[in-house]
Design a protein around this nucleic acid. Structure first.
Lengths: 123, 123
DNA sequence: CGAGATACCTTGTCACGCAAGGTATATTTC
DNA sequence: GAAATATACCTTGCGTGACAAGGTATCTCG
């Protein structure tokens, strides 16, 4: 996966802002089954969200750094038999708590949004 | 509703970032049944989202201004019999289109998130 | 006339996604 | 064995937007 670019001059991609806050939750969820390295996470985010969420490595690495600084993930370097060295990330216990909490918050939030969008009542 | 403050020194309020992107959609939805004025919208957002989304007027007014500049809402001043003058906002046809589009995007996004969070598969 | 309530608006700060660059290592090709 | 390519990680600069904090204008009440 190379530099993509997307063509975008000044276009606002509507819910772009919304997707921001979801990213931390998504990354933690992706790490739940086991460890993964940076580039792997970048493509997993797009794949597992079926395109609803697309990120670049320039977005991910600062986030991973914040997560590590917050104690939610721990890292490990590994040099595979072929290819460049990889930095593997895995959840810490605090990271699993954070994941659970964000999951609950997401559920509450999306439920509230669904209700609000469904109701036709005039305030 | 006065200045609230929330106590927050450096605290990260978790899904705060996520709620950003939802706000435009929520405000447009609140205006769907008819016009409303600023302060009314501020309290309606909290009430209709049942606390899942809380904003201050300092957040809303810049957003309303952006929506107006984008042609999604139109305004009208009214001086009520009692109290300070109010600026009423209503959806334009373009605003209704935007609302419909954001609603579809929200549905797709929340569906993708739900699926991602539900799946336990190891990438 | 003050004090308070209602309502609107602006300024400054901070967070963060993202494009665009860069570095390091390993592999392939000539 | 040097250049080219691929893989992977990291950093810088910019723009956007939520929010706190402050401000202004109008009206009501004592």
């Amino acid at each position: 996966m190379t530099r993509d670019g997307e063509g975008g001059e000044g276009r606002r991609s509507t819910l772009r802002e919304l997707k921001r806050g979801a990213l931390e939750l998504v990354v933690l969820q992706l790490l739940a089954p086991g460890e993964a390295y940076g580039y792997e996470i970048v493509s997993a985010v797009t794949a597992r969200s079926r395109g609803a969420l697309e990120i670049t490595d320039g977005t991910l690495y600062p986030l991973l750094y914040r997560l590590e600084k917050a104690g939610f993930v721990a890292t490990r370097w590994e040099t595979p038999e072929r290819g460049a060295p990889r930095k593997y990330y895995r959840l810490t216990p605090a990271g699993r708590e954070e994941l659970a909490m964000l999951g609950r918050e997401w559920a509450a939030f999306s439920k509230a949004m669904g209700r609000l969008l469904r109701d036709q009542e005039g305030r």
